[in-house]
Amino acid sequence: MPAGTLYRGREGMWSWVAHRVTGVLIFFFLFVHVLDTALVRVSPEAYDEVVATYKTPLVAVLEYGLVAAILFHALNGLRVIAVDFWSKGARYQKHMLWTVMAVWVVLMLGAMYPVLGHAAREVFGS
């Protein structure tokens, strides 16, 4: 096989892949999330018991991952809208992706303490 013939994609393709993957993950979470919230119609105890598992350190890491997926999907979704509706959107799609990634990193840093702080205190002691 000749070297260097595999198409590895560029920014546009990989953002498209990431948009699909994060979208599917968020949709499956949403399904579970509506089911767990429906427990408020069963009893306060049943609801509080399930929500207690959401406060464990392991699930806190999953929540941080959920925030990461949602923020990327939201920011990249705005980029897709700009590509479709802004006359210069297609020309600046790469610039907009790097802007998306920069804003995403800043927001993820900002979410680190609020989402993971309680888990870190529990695991490493306060």
Binding site: D48, V51, V67, A111, P114, V115
Partner: peptide
């Protein structure tokens, strides 16, 4: 997840 104690305050109340 962020304001007012994050996930810790969530419950039936």
């Amino acid at each position: 997840l962020v304001l007012d104690g994050g996930v810790s305050k969530i419950g039936f109340a």
